[in-house]
Design a protein around this nucleic acid. Structure first.
Length: 156
DNA sequence: GCCAACGTTGGC
DNA sequence: GCCAACGTTGGC
């Protein structure tokens, strides 16, 4: 793990938790429940640090794209929904002794204009942004500093 | 609703 | 370890 702040893009379905929902939450902070992909989990578990920058992205909706800025607001801890038999995220194979899934808290900082997927794709400076790669389905992807800076400028 | 792409599972 | 079958993601 390197030093300094890292940057991430995190997808959320707005029907589930939109940028408005996050901003309306206590301290504008939400627990990022429901990640059930090992690669995405490993980013939270092994690479995220409190204060890391987050691009808040709406997926599976009418206008997918970046809709806000946020920050990582906790260290990783077990996702409580994995133990909840009534949750859609329940995992019967996970135990309290050896939790399979972790999460972090994410604090929304501000809503931005929607930087839409077509707009992102049309920007040559973002050619290598992981979320734009063909077939990319990861709900959490690292963002390079140069991409973070470029997108920040677009959202000013 | 369709379907491409990817991840996971489980038989062998 | 291989790989077919199945499940999920997510744009369109």
């Amino acid at each position: 793990m390197g030093t300094g702040v890292n940057y991430w893009l995190m997808k959320s379905e707005p029907d589930d938790c939109s940028i408005d929902d996050a901003l309306a939450a206590q301290d504008s902070t939400v627990a990022w429940v429901g990640v059930r992909n090992y690669q995405a989990r490993n980013f939270m578990r092994d690479a995220m640090a409190v204060g890391d920058g987050v691009l808040f992205y709406h997926s599976s909706c009418a206008e997918p794209g970046i809709v806000g800025l946020a920050r990582v607001a906790s260290w990783p801890y077990p996702d409580p929904t994995q133990f909840d038999a009534t949750s859609r995220y329940h995992d019967s194979k996970s135990t309290h002794a050896a939790p399979r899934w972790v999460l972090v808290n994410v604090q929304a900082l501000r809503k931005t204009r929607t930087l839409s997927l077509p707009e992102l794709r049309a920007d040559a400076a973002l050619d290598n942004l992981l979320v734009l790669k063909k077939g990319s389905r990861l709900s959490i992807t690292p963002v390079e500093l140069q991409h973070w800076l470029h997108i920040s400028r677009l959202l000013e």
